[in-house]
């Protein structure tokens, strides 16, 4: 290899990687655009949407119940250790309520659904791709994005906010269990403390807690991330059954990173728009 080629090799490598990344970004947002377009234009696959709501939503209820319950319980336990030093155990409700509704509820729900439903979607579409079922759909004049992606996209958009509400409520209930059973707080005191935490950031439209709104908006974005990422990896599967495994793993890793990154930016946006 000549000296010039050796010197330029790292730049060529970076340039190649940057081009690949740009191509993936373009394809990813292209798929998001087609999913959004397919959500509002015919044909609608209502039966497929119902099936996906069952898979993504109903199927995830068990794990979000467990996640919410134990997150609330551990939050109450951990905060009790700190607050006891100041004799401030009555604020446990505030801590559990604010943490669960603002951050942990939406983020943990999204991560759990990614692990359960997102990887499943990627594996299912990946298997369809390597067994030529996606090509079979196209040859029969059916658009795979409308038939496969849009129902999963809508199901995630609908299911994530609802699952997040369940997680929030169960987390608050988990905190209540610990507060009452281990810290001898009354139910009324705990719930009043939770309410104060939610009222602290104020209300929008006169009655909706801003925390509640932010906790509801985030899951919609997270739902879109889970659906588009899992479908993107699934439809792009190559390399047989090994490729299916890679697609499922890639979905969980990428979705989780995107969820955590977008959580930061969404929080910034909500603070700027609704709180400040």
């Amino acid at each position: 290899m000549s000296l010039a080629a050796t010197v330029t090799a790292p730049f060529r490598y970076v340039s190649r990687r940057a081009r690949t990344l740009a191509w993936h970004a373009q394809s990813y947002f292209g798929l998001l655009g087609r999913a959004l377009q397919g959500s509002v234009t015919r044909p609608f696959y209502l039966r497929d949407l119902t099936v996906q709501l069952d898979v993504v939503g109903v199927g995830s209820i068990g794990i979000v119940l467990l996640t919410g319950l134990f997150t609330g319980m551990v939050l109450a336990l951990q905060s009790a250790v700190e607050l006891r030093q100041f004799g401030a155990e009555i604020y446990i409700g505030r801590l559990v309520g604010a943490s669960a509704v603002r951050e942990l509820g939406p983020v943990l729900t999204a991560l759990m659904v990614t692990g359960r439903a997102g990887s499943g979607i990627a594996a299912e579409l990946g298997a369809m791709r390597v067994t030529e079922q996606i090509d079979a759909l196209k040859t029969m004049g059916v658009d795979p994005v409308r038939k496969l992606v849009v129902p999963r996209f809508l199901a995630c958009l609908i299911a994530l906010p609802l699952l997040t509400i369940i997680t929030d409520l169960i987390a608050i209930l988990g905190g209540l269990l610990i507060a009452v059973a281990k810290l001898d707080l009354s139910v009324d005191l705990y719930m009043r403390s939770v309410y104060l935490a939610l009222a602290q950031t104020g209300f929008t439209l006169g009655f909706l807690s801003i925390d509640f709104v932010s906790g509801f908006l985030k899951p919609i974005v997270f739902g879109a991330i889970i659906a588009v990422t899992s479908c993107y990896f699934g439809l792009g599967t190559t390399g047989g059954t090994e490729g299916v495994g890679r697609a499922a793993t890639g979905t969980v890793v990428t979705s989780s990173i995107f969820i955590l990154m977008s959580d930061y930016f969404l929080t910034q946006l909500i603070i700027a728009l609704l709180i400040e």
Partner: peptide, 9 residues
């Protein structure tokens, strides 16, 4: 007609 039939599982 696909090589592995490509029937929907």
């Amino acid at each position: 007609v696909f090589q592995a039939s490509a029937l929907f599982d």
